[in-house]
Design a protein around this nucleic acid. Structure first.
Lengths: 202, 202
DNA sequence: AATCGAATTGGAGGTCATCTCCACTTCCCA
DNA sequence: TGGGAAGTGGAGATGACCTCCAATTCGATT
């Protein structure tokens, strides 16, 4: 996956400096308020260098995001290996909220990128989604969770939590969403939840 | 609420033209791909006029959004007046999904504006949230719905649904989220849902 | 260690969307 | 119908984004 070309020493150094500064700015939440040119200066390189390493703002975000996602995915696998399925899922989702709480700036940045539809996060998103899908699948197989609602719904809920990072009572409400999702998932697939599709808006 | 100054006839006409064209572009989903100046031309007015009426892109969005939200809020009140609380809530949420499905471009635009944190939607958001809050409150009072998770959580879920408008299986997954939320809400507030807050990420 | 080709740098300047400004036009009241 | 206030629109200033290439730095070779 990560291949092709051994970077020269100074290039490597600059790349590192850019990533480090980017992570810093991300967590501060000011990623989109900063002129991209100024960001280069902040990191101590010229604009040309910045653009050489990261052709767009999104590419830079993707690079940072990548590491974070890798951490989260590892955590998911670890939970899945050590806890009963339902508990693994619950712990992971609760943990995601905690993670976002601790990295609000990142959450904001990601939400913006998502909404912008940049597509730069496609790979990372897929990785995270795969982790969630696996957790849900295991819980379903275990019989602990209904099978008529896909993991995509859980992703949407997480997405909403991240996107709403700036609401006043964020943490409590985010925990509330997770509670609803988990309790909703646990409910044995009883007949009528009223999945009728037409309500006449329009 | 809408007060202060009686617009001159031509001004009124231009304003109308701008709003009409805006609604058109919104639903087509291309609101952010269009140069703002070109939009003025599209509507048949000069850029100066556009900026006079709507100082920013967001202001224009807000103006369009306003009418849509009013419709939705009316619908909510109507449901609340004619259906039992729980059913009113369920019908409203299902209806929201249907509405977004029918207005995907609008959904995308709103999601982008939300994430951008423009704040332009603050008023409309509050109105919608009030409607949801009322629906939930009624259902809680009726005993049909748990009282330990606020309406904010439901808003977050809706937010997530809107923000993810471009996912492949959107409609099915969106319905899934609503199902989870409704079933989660119905569940009698049983002791442990594991609302522990620290899972050791960050 | 000194040389040289190749990789990398960095910032000056081109490009383009946003927004302002004001000379002109349109409207409406007396 | 005339006067003046309200509104118009587009030319051009502003500023962010990105490209390009002369100068520099690296590291392999002798």
């Amino acid at each position: 996956m990560n291949s092709a070309k051994p970077l020269r020493a100074d290039a490597q150094r600059n790349r590192e400096a850019l990533l480090a500064k980017a992570r810093e700015v991300f967590d501060a939440g000011g990623f989109f308020d900063l002129r991209f040119d100024d960001f280069a200066r902040l990191a101590g390189v010229g604009t040309g260098t910045l653009y050489r390493h990261f052709p767009t703002r999104e590419a830079l975000a993707e690079a940072v995001y990548h590491e974070e996602v890798a951490t989260l995915c590892d955590r998911a696998r670890q939970l899945q290996a050590t806890l009963p399925p339902e508990e693994a899922l619950a712990t992971f989702l609760r943990g995601m909220v905690g993670y976002m709480d601790a990295h609000q700036g990142l959450a904001r940045t990601l939400a913006t990128l998502m909404a912008t539809g940049s597509g730069a996060l496609a790979e990372g998103s897929r990785a995270l989604e795969q982790a969630v899908t696996d957790l849900v699948a295991a819980a379903v197989k275990d019989g602990a969770v209904r099978d008529d609602v896909g993991a995509g719904a859980v992703m949407m809920a997480l997405h909403g939590i991240g996107a709403a990072h700036d609401r006043p009572g964020w943490r409590a409400e985010a925990d509330g969403v997770i509670t609803l999702v988990l309790d909703g998932l646990r409910r044995s697939h009883s007949g009528d939840s009223g999945t009728s599709t037409s309500a006449g808006y329009g």
